[in-house]
Design a protein around this nucleic acid. Structure first.
Lengths: 216, 216
DNA sequence: CACGAACCGTACCGTACGGTACTCATTTAA
DNA sequence: TTAAATGAGTACCGTACGGTACGGTTCGTG
């Protein structure tokens, strides 16, 4: 626990700057543009330092993922009694945030990178990306859903199943389409609203449904 | 129309055999293993023939996608009066088929390939994959949903929205997880059942809900 | 039979990458 | 002040790929 807690000092500031440049190269030109020489040139460092710091190219890729994950922080829900309206609003905000994260340049680039490497041997990149990149958002959603259940606003047996349903309603095939390069997928607001409405229709108790009917 | 209709003779039998070997190489070893020399060796043809037939490496990749898409055929729903039970069953079968297709070796490999190339310039691979690979399954689902509406079993305003909801309920984040290489994602049966139940709860008319309550 | 087209197998070329080694400048510590 | 350490910049090596060229072989056709 404690040994893992120091994620803020996982790399030195110099190394963080190098990783930042590496991410920029990856976002701009894809994996093909992410060469060790290119990173060294862009970051004004030597290749020898790259190999000393990160071991090899795969180590650099892993470091890029953990570095990017360390930059994304999401608030943890705590306290605050939930009402039907506030639950709805929090769900909508969560949906918008999720879509915004998934549509981000760096997120897409890293997902493409990990997916491209996923059929090679070992390649823990996919696993790393799921663990480091998703844990935050998963915890936030789970906390929200559990709070909704405790407040008598949601009803379900398996919280994980409910969360995956919410995820599917929000994202649908948007993530894969964006990964495939489809342009013009930016109407996230309506999508988020629709997903939350459907989710509440599926898992909301009478309390939520009554309020929803009243507000409409 | 007619000029596009001859998809069965898009490539010669010899070329199809070559593309088959190329797909096998891609599935086994990922994009890195898909070299022109490797394809030529595996298919017992010369590199010169490869370049004569497909132009360059990108042409080969495109040909692999169109060839694979030409192999996947799905039945078109027609006639046959729908009941609540048959609609449910057809939806479940569709869900299982969709998950099975997405989890297929070749599908995953081609999606990984297209995603990996999607941040390069031009790269029409993603567009090609979406158009050729999704049209069949999209049409089948749309037909089914429309038939459900005509039979008074489903209610919705936007058929496309309803279909995307169904897709999200079925697939959730399974596709991306599989693309990232996560193992052991094979409990498609329960997932399909749950998705259809949720979909009918969202879009089913009283007729469907009554029968669902009766069967439970 | 003769001829040409198609094609296989292989050798070849230019390039670019991952990784290593070496030099030289700057910093740090005693 | 000086010696050790750090790291930038560069040159280098082996390899492997995309793409092309060429000799030899099969096969269909007049």
């Amino acid at each position: 626990m404690l040994s893992e807690a120091g994620q803020s000092s996982e790399f030195s500031p110099r190394q963080n700057a190098v990783l930042e440049q590496a991410l920029r190269l990856l976002v701009d030109g894809g994996e093909k543009a992410l060469t060790t020489s290119g990173v060294a040139r862009a970051a004004n460092c030597s290749k020898e330092s790259l190999y000393k710091w990160f071991g090899d190219r795969d180590g650099l890729l892993s470091a890029m993922i953990t570095y990017q994950a360390s930059k994304v922080r999401t608030f943890e829900r705590n306290g605050e009694r939930l009402t039907a309206a506030s639950l709805h609003d929090h769900l909508v905000v969560f949906s918008r945030d999720l879509l915004e994260v998934l549509a981000g340049d760096v997120s897409l680039a890293l997902n493409r990178l990990a997916i491209g490497q996923s059929n090679r041997d070992g390649s823990k990149l996919g696993k790393l990306l799921l663990e480091r990149g998703r844990r935050q958002i998963d915890r936030r959603a789970s906390g929200l859903i559990d709070a909704g259940k405790r407040a008598g606003l949601l009803r379900f047996l398996d919280a994980d199943e409910a969360y995956h349903t919410l995820y599917g309603l929000i994202v649908s095939d948007l993530h894969v389409r964006m990964l495939l390069g489809e342009p013009g997928l930016k109407d996230t607001s309506r999508q988020a609203e629709r997903a939350v409405t459907a989710f509440l229709k599926l898992y909301g108790t009478e309390k939520v449904l009554a309020e929803a009917a009243a507000t409409v």
